[in-house]
Design a protein around this nucleic acid. Structure first.
Length: 263
DNA sequence: TGTGATGTTGAATG
DNA sequence: GCATTCAACATCAC
């Protein structure tokens, strides 16, 4: 699930459920997704701590602790949060959960174990170490244009590059290319400045709307691409058949005549 | 049964 | 250094 709007939804969920409660116990079922320490060290570092606020940048969600450390949650492909009260409500693929001193629990569910969980002493150092770009909702137009213009990569590759801007994944990258009528294989440096500005503007409008809709696809406007983003689809106006191709390593959908190729 | 999936990383290649 | 492709990670659903 998790691109920027989904992670934003997780953040609201975390904020609304788990903040300001002392973690009484940490129960780790599978420490594979904990990337920078053992399950024991993780447990030790979090027991008796309280999450006091959160910060999201792209797909990375940081829960700040009362000792200045941060718990980083990256949801991979299938990460999810579940706040529950009865032990039998534990999600099926929960990898760990916190038991709070009021008896409630926050579980991290992740069937595919692609999530990355780290307990960090210094959040800023970590962000710097992975060269995480500015949040896609925050990046200024001029910075986006400046990042795109010298690059020979595809526009799709640029949008997916978390070092350039953080938060765009495969679906929303296809969405913005469609809405701006840009072929995803277009070379970033070949796209006119005016079109780059449009991409920036549309991207933020799309992400903003998705965030406001709690990443609930059913609430998205009818003319968005997601409903057509599947094999055999025909363009809603032109009837042109959809195309599927691997671009920048990811399966991409687009209408090759409707979306202009800049090269 | 085989295939591919909303992500990231590291290695190999050009 | 840059860009791309591929494999790996692990499980589920069609």
């Amino acid at each position: 699930m998790p691109e920027l709007p989904e992670v934003s939804t997780f953040q609201k969920y975390l904020d609304g459920t788990a903040l300001d409660q002392k973690i009484q116990e940490v129960i780790v079922h599978d420490d594979k997704i904990i990337r920078n320490m053992s399950g024991e060290a993780f447990t030790k570092g979090l027991t008796d701590r309280t999450m006091i606020n959160s910060y999201r940048r792209g797909k990375y969600l940081f829960a700040r602790l009362d000792n200045g450390h941060s718990l980083l949650l990256h949801f991979g492909m299938t990460g999810d949060l579940s706040y529950y009260h009865q032990p039998e409500d534990r999600p099926r693929h929960e990898r760990f959960h916190f038991l709070f001193d009021n008896g409630s629990r926050l579980g991290f569910d992740c069937p595919r174990k692609f999530a990355r969980i780290l307990l960090l002493e210094n959040e800023a150092d970590y962000i710097h170490s992975i060269q995480l770009g500015e949040d896609a909702l925050e990046i200024q137009e001029a910075d986006f244009v400046a990042a795109a213009q010298p690059r020979k990569c595809t526009i799709k590759g640029l949008l997916l590059n978390q070092k350039v801007l953080a938060g765009v994944g495969n679906l929303y990258a296809d969405e913005v290319c469609y809405q701006c009528r840009v072929h995803p294989v277009s070379k970033a440096s070949a796209i006119p400045t005016k079109k780059l500005k449009e991409l920036h503007k549309k991207l933020q409008a799309i992400l903003r709307k998705a965030v406001d809709s709690h990443a609930h696809y059913k609430e998205y406007p009818d003319d968005w691409f997601w409903a057509w983003r599947k094999d055999e689809a025909l363009h809603p106006k032109t009837g042109e058949p959809i195309e599927r191709a691997k671009i920048a390593g990811r399966t991409s959908y687009y209408f090759p005549k409707y979306q202009k190729l800049y090269e």
